[in-house]
Design a protein around this nucleic acid. Structure first.
Lengths: 108, 108
DNA sequence: AATGCATATGAATCTAGATTGATAAAGATC
DNA sequence: GATCTTTATCAATCTAGATTCATATGCATT
């Protein structure tokens, strides 16, 4: 049994959330949704890429639970789900707070 | 000018740190280095992959400043640099703490 | 119900980056 | 200095996933 006190999550990225966020357009989408809901047309314009591409990335984000949608008249609005980021944020914070390990596992 | 108060870092991943961490083997390496220094041979054994592959990933982590090395006799020990994770951890935490945005940018 | 608009989906291609294999480099030991 | 051990590097291949293009879908509006 390892001696470390278990952080909030067992592994740095149990559910692949890191991989979902680690894509330039998706990063930007998440940042854009940080303080307001936006529809696909807004995102398409802000990002300067095709609507199809935006929709594809939104699909990935939605499947990961990072964003949520709600339809209003013609438009589909996307909203950030901050809760979805919490476990990863906590785990990363736990790692960031460690003091540099001095212990060294012996070799050979 | 956007109305949001700027979080700790301007963008979620200014320096590509997310992309560096978003790789299964590198995630595991980071977790393994969380509480002790390990040399390449340890990592190779723990991960069950070839030494070459481990070295490649360690190179990526080192270039990103996530780990540090120190040579001792035959072996090269790797150490986590928690400071390197701090900006990302803080930005992610800031996002995770937001209350779901109710504001909606008007369309058309 | 017919038409129009915004968005979603599916298949095809393209690409960055992961993996592999062979070998070089750097320092330790004798 | 010769050899041994560990780790790094380089080029080649492979692969997951990003991008594109064509088209379908869902709901609004008339």
């Amino acid at each position: 049994m390892p001696t470390s006190a278990a952080p909030t999550t067992r592994s740095l990225d149990d559910d692949g959330l890191l991989r979902v966020l680690a894509e330039p357009l998706r990063e930007r989408i998440v940042d854009l949704l940080a303080d307001e809901e936006l529809c696909v047309c807004h995102l398409t314009e802000e990002l300067g890429v095709t609507q199809t591409l935006v929709s594809h990335h939104l699909r990935v984000l939605r499947d990961a639970g990072v964003v949520d949608t709600e339809r209003h008249r013609y438009w589909t609005y996307y909203r950030l789900r901050p809760e979805a980021l919490r476990p990863l944020a906590e785990h990363l914070t736990a790692l960031a707070r460690r003091r540099p390990a001095r212990r060294r596992r012996p070799c050979g």
